[in-house]
Structures are given as C-alpha cells and as structure tokens.
Amino acid sequence: MADLKVKIGNLEFKNPVTTASGTFGSGQEYSDFIDLNKLGGIFVKGITPKNREGNPYPRMAETASGMLNAVGLQNKGVDYFIEEIYPVVKKFDTHIIPNVNGSSIEEYLEVTEKLNNIDDIKAIELNISCPNVKEGGMAFGVKKSSAIAVTKAVREICDKTLIVKLSPNVTDIADMAKAVEDSGADAVSLVNTFLGMAINHKTRKPVLSTITGGLSGPAIKPIALRMVWQVSNAVKIPVIGLGGIMNAGDAIEFILAGASAVQIGTANFIDPQISVKIIDGINDYLNENNFNSVKEIIGGLMREI
C-alpha cells in the first residue's frame, strides 16, 4: 500500500480523492454503494443562508460526453444542514466540507459564521462559481474585484481551511487564482462547470428552463486539466483539481498537472462506486511505478515529450 496522504493547507487528507459538491448530496445518498470512510473528503451540496427551491424543471440535458445542469443551488439552508444533515454525516471518518454560497457578501458571511462554530468541520469551500443563480454565484468568480472582496471578507471570520472554488468562465484563471491566494485562500479548487446551452432543434426550444446551464463531464476534461496546470504554476497554495475525471488515469493526470487532490463529479452519477475505484487505481499506479507516496507525483509532469 502506497502512502496516499496529502495535505491541503494544514489539513491532512487520507487520500487525494474527494467528491465534488452537487454530485454527491451529503454522502448518505451513496452509502448503499460504497464505504464513505474510504474517501479523502466529501464536498457537500451547496449551502445558502435560507431554503432555496432552485430552478424549474427541466434542469439537466445530456450532451456529447457531458451534461448540462441548471439545478440552481436547491438546498434547505444552513440551519437545516447543521441540525439535520451534519449530525448524520459527521460520523463518517472523512472530511465533510460544506460548499458555501450566497447572493451577497453578507449571505456568504452568514453561512460561514454558522459553519465556523462547528469544531469538527475543518474546511469550507467558498463557491464563487455557480453558473446557475441569478445573483451571486459565478458573478463573484468572474470579476477579480468581487472575488477578492468576498474571499477577504470570509477569510476574516473563517478559522477553517478556506478553499475557494474557481469558475472556468474567465479570461485568465491563473490571475484569478493569484488574486484569491493574495486574499487569504488556503487552497483553490477548479474547475466549476462551463457555461453552456442546449437547444432542441425539433421543438426550436431550449432544453433547460434557464436556457443556459453548467457543462460537466469528460467533455470538459482537457480544458480543466489545462487550467489546473496553469493555476498550479501560478500559485503557491495547493490546488484541488476537477472537471470530467472518469477514472484513476484521469485523476493521476490532474495530480501530474499539479493538483494535490481531486474531486470526482459527474462520474458519480454513472458509477456510484467510482470514487473508491479511483483510490484503488491511484494506489495501484503508485505501486506499479515504484512510488512510495502520492506526494511524489504531484506536479510531476515530465516536460520532455
């Protein structure tokens, strides 16, 4: 067994494989299929201050090697998370990392403040990249000044490891990553979904109720990988890579590009056991290539072709 432990800021993860927010519920949804204790971490579904019903149906469209979603942060609010969901999932031996959302800086602070009071929560993921909400979300993540403002404000009141989730819908993601690093982020996770759209030519109507939505899945992997590589070269803080990871090979590629950990997203829908299979696959890869620790391959891209 290779050493799979990685560090994100001051926080140790038993392995680099986590599940992406919005694709894994709170974890419980998958407990019939895998042992959640094996995961490095679970990034739980996005949380807002109050109950949100999200966008109207239809919210999903399968596209070539991917899917568009426009869920719109449906969740029951931070109090419900703390009272009803967290007590159930905290018993699992893995990091439970809430994904924090808001339509204003005040709302981000409200959610952060409440989560900050829970000792067992060691990290939060600040979502400034949701493409499916009218206010807040991606609006904070595509403009440098607002990304800086919300990161600084949350950093001020947050004692936890602060991971900022970046939007790929920007001109220069490395520049954005540097800006949040300078604003106090302990790590960045990237990428969230790409803004996309589907039309049914037969009905001449959009497929999604919101017309546009977020594209995920293997279709986005090469772009996500490129962005993870660019950001890893630009910042000193750890990078968590995601975007279309379907198997252990994909996960290893993100790690070679510079990611210290990965998040598995859309692949969970196709194979609910994939996250654990990826952990095993990374271990096998390290053994077969005579590495003692996964840390040896972080950023280990060989530059000569």
């Binding site: 999200g54 999903m60 609910p272």
Partner: peptide, 11 residues
C-alpha cells in the same frame, strides 16, 4: 442523472 437523490435534476 443519478437516480439516487444526489443531483437534484429530476425534480
């Protein structure tokens, strides 16, 4: 998408 209540797409 998921069929198990995780993605919230089929509401």
């Amino acid at each position: 998408a998921c069929g198990i209540g995780a993605c919230l797409c089929c509401v």
